[in-house]
Design a binder for these strands. Structure first.
Lengths: 211, 211
DNA sequence: TTTAATTTTGACCAATTAGTTAAATCATTT
DNA sequence: AAATGATTTAACTAATTGGTCAAAATTAAA
């Protein structure tokens, strides 16, 4: 009978989920401990019992979300496949991920820009040195042939990631000029089309480069 | 001797500039009226004398910044030129603009997502219907020839805007994996290179589309 | 069943926050 | 220079906020 343990887990999970919701919606400065407690269906004092301060609770949530985002981006590029295959899989899976987590990009961009030091801890967790090596390996094996200079690899990577992330981050801004984006069904359809559009766009741009 | 008028203007300007700084850095929820007053070198009561509430002050700043951003994006596409020329000019000028206003993208994305209704007022100010017509005109005149479907115009426009905006918004996030981006000189150099990279990338992708 | 430990709560506190007020200062007009 | 109106200030208020505490309730161990 591990009832108690389960309950601990339940309460802590409820808090964590509520905190994730509120922080994603309102950001650190806009979030209120009271609202997190309310959404978790508990007392505010209990919040401080499990997570001593707002900062601690926030950091716990932030790190999970940051890792979630980066792991999704990195894991695919780590796989053994051609650049083209990796890029297609990345766009497919990452866009699916973003449709399920539409508030994540703005939240992360905003919080990291508010305090860049917060992301420090992640450098070790995600073996980014390993990824950097892999990117340059991909370059010398495949992309050199496309006329991409080693120097341009950051440009290319940012472009690909931006293809999926930017529309999600800028959705409400786009909606000023394209009101159809306010309709979530239509926006999701737009993102579905984007998988093919982006992959085709990048591959065409690469294949036909002047070398 | 319009000394007093000048002074009014001076004080109001000082407040407005200070508010712009603080709101851009901290966002609405993170900004403090006291800090704005301090940076403007005045009393907090004087802040409320010129702008009755935090909301009013924020809205004043927000609208100016939102308009600034959109005017920069739109004005170029309104000009009489080929799509290729417009795109090049857009990337050149917009990237210059973003280098001078690096905090603007995240600020706007964040605040609009926090409260999309805030941007409503802009629809009329920027004749966006006019722009939409122009975009579809550009499509039927030029882009159809590139194998771009009318349906894909939003995809293309978002891609181009994202090319310039995303790296600026995501700079600190990129810096987790590319520490060189922490160096502003290097980041600005990256953005300078991006003018050519992005323009070439898009044009190559367009020219070689299967139709 | 009794005891001990853990979890949950209501009531409270100190600090911070946006906003107010009445008086003082300054500039302009007469 | 006196009166008038606009600008600036110091001191204050009411509400909100993150955080605490001691007691109550619940669970686990004896």
């Amino acid at each position: 009978m591990v009832k108690k343990r389960e309950l601990i887990g339940q309460t802590q999970s409820k808090i964590f989920e509520a905190a994730t919701e509120v922080f994603e919606e309102k950001g650190y400065t806009g979030a209120r401990m009271q609202e997190i407690a309310d959404r978790a269906g508990i007392n505010k004092a209990l919040l401080h019992y499990y997570f001593r301060t707002k900062d601690q609770l926030f950091m716990a949530v932030f790190h999970v979300l940051l890792k979630k985002m980066f792991e999704k981006i990195l894991s695919i590029f780590m796989e053994e496949a051609t650049f083209k295959e990796k890029m297609r899989r990345f766009l497919d899976e990452h866009i699916e991920f973003l449709i399920r987590n539409p508030k994540l990009p703005i939240f992360l961009l905003n919080e990291i820009s508010r305090n860049p030091a917060m992301a420090e801890g992640l450098k070790e967790t995600l073996q980014y040195a390993q990824l950097r090596d892999l990117i340059y390996e991909t370059h010398s094996k495949e992309l050199k042939g496309y006329g991409i200079k080693k120097n341009d690899m950051p440009q290319l990577m940012i472009t690909i990631v931006g293809m999926s992330v930017f529309p999600v981050a800028a959705r409400d801004m786009m909606a000023i000029m394209m009101p159809q984006m306010n309709d979530t069904r239509k926006f999701n359809a737009f993102m579905q089309e984007r998988k093919e559009f982006a992959a085709g766009f990048v591959m065409t741009a690469l294949k036909n480069r002047k070398k």
